[in-house]
Simulated assay, not measured.
Amino acid sequence: MQRRTILKGGAAAAATLALGRPGFAGSHLPVKAGFIYVGPIGDGGWTYEHNEGRLAVEEHFGDQVETVYQESVPEGADAERALTQMALGGADIIFTTSFGYMDPTINVAKKFPDVKFEHATGYKRADNVATYSARFYEGRAVQGTIAGMMTETNKIGYIGSFPIPEVIRGINSAYIHAKKVNPDVEFSVVWAFTWFDPAKEADAATALIEQGCDVILQHTDSTAPQAAAASAGDVITFGQASDMAEYKPLPRVSSIIDNWAPYYIERVQAVIDGSWEPTDTWGGIDSGMVKIGEITDAVPEEVKAKALEIRDSIADGSYHPFTGPLNKQDGSAWLAEGETATDETLLGMNFYVEGLSGTIPQ
């Protein structure tokens, strides 16, 4: 029988603290895998897909693995408390699934050296802390291609969450590829300063639509921008992190799907085997960690063909989304003809490419 637990504050916290954490022998079963989520599992996007990965772990391992999770954990001190409770409650491996959990993960890992920690989208590692992320910018290249070819107003809106390299990479990639197929395209970026807040996300989408944007991209977690576009009519959108298929065939014409299940299964298996190590994983379209959701019939065939060409060339390694010639926003040279960006540059990206307007908040 598969088991799962939802940890909620108060009584649950007291219970976990009272339990203490048994020592991990490296081969005891069931292994307990914990997940800390920044949003609710019903957000329809980022957290939903991480939770789908957790459910896949349960299905794959059966009674060998018990999973626990806590949803809607704010980044910061609350995350550190939630992680501590989960470690005290006997978790053998804990996945922390948002960038802002980075320092709390490192801090708690120091206190629990026998617990394995996995932090999504961060860059700090330790003897018992691994990192993992997906090359979302590859999916943005496909989305940007569709957006540039389908816009009628030549105005594309982009809802950003926080101005971190992960999000900036996506904006740049989408813009580069929209511009390649439509030199007249313009991007407007609105920063929501939240991962999940349906009201703010809807307001941002509405503001962009009122500015004349007929394509909306998002790096936020809810389906609120999809709903706003559906109400406006004649606006297309893309699913973010999950398929958001309830809005097919319009406004949602395709999506980036984060496929975490294989990674979660692999890493839990490593705990069971005693082979777990603090690795750094950055998967993309080629590994299946990034998937392109169905391109609907609302997309013209020639547009679909171009988008699939981009997807397939990224997958087989014949094309890199950041290939020169490319300049930075201020006109200074960045990549020469045929030169591709290094992972080091992409991981620290803090600039817009030439042609994008506006400034990145500091």
Rank of each mutant, 00 (worst) to 15 (best):
Q240H: 15
Q226G: 06
P225F: 01
S254V: 09
W260I: 00
Q226S: 08
V253P: 11
G239I: 03
S255I: 10
P251K: 03
V253N: 04
N259W: 14
I236M: 14
D243G: 01
D243E: 15
A228Y: 12
T237S: 07
T223A: 10
A232V: 09
A224W: 12
A241D: 15
I265R: 13
Q226H: 15
A232N: 08
Q240F: 11
Y263I: 00
S231E: 14
V235Q: 03
A230H: 13
P251T: 01
A228C: 11
I265M: 06
V268H: 06
F238T: 03
P249E: 03
N259R: 06
V235L: 10
D258W: 14
P225K: 09
G233W: 15
N259Q: 06
A245F: 15
V253W: 03
G239W: 06
I256V: 13
Q240D: 07
Q240N: 14
S222H: 05
P251I: 08
K248G: 03
A261M: 10
K248F: 15
Q226W: 08
E246D: 15
T220V: 15
T237D: 07
Q240A: 13
M244T: 04
P249A: 00
Y247V: 01
A229F: 12
K248C: 03
D243N: 09
P249Y: 02
A232M: 08
D234R: 09
E246S: 12
D258N: 09
R267Y: 02
W260F: 06
Q240C: 09
A245D: 15
L250V: 14
D258Q: 10
W260V: 00
P262E: 01
E266V: 00
Q226R: 02
P249K: 05
A229H: 07
E246H: 03
V268K: 08
E266Y: 13
Q240W: 13
A229N: 11
V268M: 13
P251S: 04
Y264S: 01
D258Y: 14
D258R: 02
S254F: 05
A232H: 10
S222D: 06
P262I: 00
K248M: 07
D234V: 03
T237M: 07
S242F: 06
G239C: 09
I236R: 10
R252W: 00
A261P: 12
F238W: 05
S255W: 13
N259I: 03
P225C: 06
A227E: 14
T220E: 02
A241M: 14
D234F: 05
E246K: 11
I257R: 01
I257L: 08
L250C: 04
P251V: 02
I265A: 03
A241L: 11
